[in-house]
Design a protein around this nucleic acid. Sequence first.
DNA 1: AGGAATTTGTGCGTATGTATC
DNA 2: AGATACATACGCACAAATTCC
Lengths: 233, 233
Amino acid sequence: MTENHALPLYVQTAERLIREINAGRLLDGERLPPERDMAQDLGISVGTLRKALADLTDKGMLDRVQGSGNYVRHSPDATSVYAFFRLELVDGGGLPTATILSVDRLEKPNDLPDFGASRYGFRIRRLRRLGGVPAAVEEIWLDGAAKDQLITEDLSESLYLYYRDQLGLWITRAEDSVGVGHVPDWAPEAFPAVPGSVCGYVERLSWAQTGDNIEYSRTWFDSDKVRHITRMK
Amino acid sequence: MTENHALPLYVQTAERLIREINAGRLLDGERLPPERDMAQDLGISVGTLRKALADLTDKGMLDRVQGSGNYVRHSPDATSVYAFFRLELVDGGGLPTATILSVDRLEKPNDLPDFGASRYGFRIRRLRRLGGVPAAVEEIWLDGAAKDQLITEDLSESLYLYYRDQLGLWITRAEDSVGVGHVPDWAPEAFPAVPGSVCGYVERLSWAQTGDNIEYSRTWFDSDKVRHITRMK
DNA sequence: AGGAATTTGTGCGTATGTATC
DNA sequence: AGATACATACGCACAAATTCC
């Protein structure tokens, strides 16, 4: 009995191309070789390659132009659903940055929803800024199974990039639940809203390409300055 | 010169199946015939049919189960982006209903964002319930160019169905902006939150399949009972 | 301007794998 | 275990859009 646990060839191919693009070996705007040539180089049929390319197109990482060619689109976050879920200043604009407040490995508290396989999780608390202005405080729970240790210095400004580059995980599905909350008591003084006061509140569950539900996060945002935006197509 | 203005066969096939489903000739949960049989009936190849079925799956109108069959899913709004943007009771469950409070044709006020072509718009105010419980009040602005007149009796519970069946428009893109607001002074007494008190707030811009930005809406929801949910894949 | 070459899009057929019944 | 049905993969022919000479 010859069991085949490998992913379908077109999925492997799509992921391979995504890695090439993310690693910068395929640049933004670059035109790929003709499909027939690519397929031959990869040792697969044109149809299989086309299915992989269609996947990338869906993800917004590729433009396919009949009669012309396939063109790479590599905007920094086009690969993530986070491109569609984000905080924005009411006035618009403002570069996002984040300061880590704390990182701890803890047993998951009971008030967290079920997510991930481990009893433990990493709790990351951050202060997020938009254009330098403190905009939100955030508590992220990363499932303990994702990594043994997590060192503050390792974490990049973008957790998405950290997941992808250090853990080999990327978020492909997310579910947001938005309402009104109260600023948590651990919010730093830099955050203008007083602990306990009313503010916007987002809960998010995120799933990686593996299908695992690896992350749960809560964000409290200053509703006077910030909006939570979603675009759907 | 014989120009061919027809859409691709797989698109025609997908649209044909969508019409069959919307017309109720294919019922929810119904299993389609095997792909080979269907393809033969339709006079097309299996590959072409599969492409059409994949389209329907993307749209959430079909479940494809290997080894079993293709199953129709006909939830009333599965075809709309509104399937992904919605209010839910914190406790879960609850059928959505809506009561029209007022319908007026007005000049668009200045505090509305730019949307649609007309100077005028229809303002629809509704009280929305979930499982009978008043959950939100809503003000919807439909661009005046969409219709000459709008009669309260014409409006169905689901504005989405009204747009689709009466106006020939369906929403294919939307952008939500969520924050904290204050209950408007026109909120009916049935709505439990007091006018002026703090509540959840959603602004939405919606685009039809024509590419036109036809609708702008504002929703104030009772944050104690209701959450605004978004799912993204 | 126009035609040839290139490149992706569409459509068909077939063989084999894998999940379900 | 066998039959059924969808999933994957390959290859080919022609159409349509673009590019280049």
